[in-house]
Amino acid sequence: MRLIGLAGWSGAGKTTLLAALIPWLTARGLAISTIKHAHHEFDVDRPGKDSHTHRLAGASQVLVASSRRWALMTELRGAPEPPLLALLAHLDPVDLVIVEGFRRDPHPKIEVHRAANGKPWLHPEDPAIRAVAADTPPPGCLPHAALDDIPAIGALALEHAAPWPG
């Protein structure tokens, strides 16, 4: 498996880019998985469902399965957040894993930047950023593509993705 990240400030367009990039890559025959980091509490379960009741009752893990999908929810219950490499170990093998977030981790990344956010560029301070997808030309000499140029960003992702050490 190979790994590439999308890093940028909130509101830069990472999720929108990812939603366009995944079909472009899968249309080329690649199997894609994603890992998304959330900086806040989130819930994939719904109150009133049996799985939610199991979690609230104290289960450490709850696996829900049907004929169409399965999901494993793990409650950390005060344990430290697992590192990216530990999370990657839970994925089935695919051609490419795209990581949204985990900005401080050392995996190769494409910076997603939107000038209207008024936020600083990440790449001058992060040597793991290998390329930029932005609505304005970036400073420096990193390869870059326009935010709406999905084929160019896809090519950058494939070029700069690295094998993950798992």
Rank of each mutant, 00 (worst) to 15 (best):
A157G: 00
V112F: 11
W24L: 14
I4P: 02
V64R: 04
A131T: 02
G5Q: 04
I4C: 02
L25C: 07
G11F: 04
P137Q: 08
D45L: 04
I98D: 02
L91G: 04
R104P: 01
L142Q: 06
P93K: 01
E81A: 14
R77A: 13
I153A: 05
V44C: 15
P163N: 00
G8W: 05
R104D: 03
R77V: 11
L158V: 02
A155W: 06
I22A: 07
T53N: 15
T53C: 15
R2F: 01
P124L: 11
A20T: 10
R114V: 15
I129W: 05
L96M: 08
K36T: 04
V132G: 02
K49F: 06
A133L: 02
V64T: 13
L6R: 01
D105A: 10
G29R: 00
R68T: 14
H37R: 07
P83M: 13
D92Y: 09
P139Y: 14
P82K: 12
W24T: 12
G154P: 11
P83I: 09
A131C: 01
A128M: 06
L3Y: 07
D43T: 11
R114I: 14
L76A: 14
P139A: 15
K119T: 13
D126T: 07
T16P: 08
V62H: 01
R77D: 14
T15P: 02
F102W: 01
L30Y: 04
L87H: 03
G48F: 08
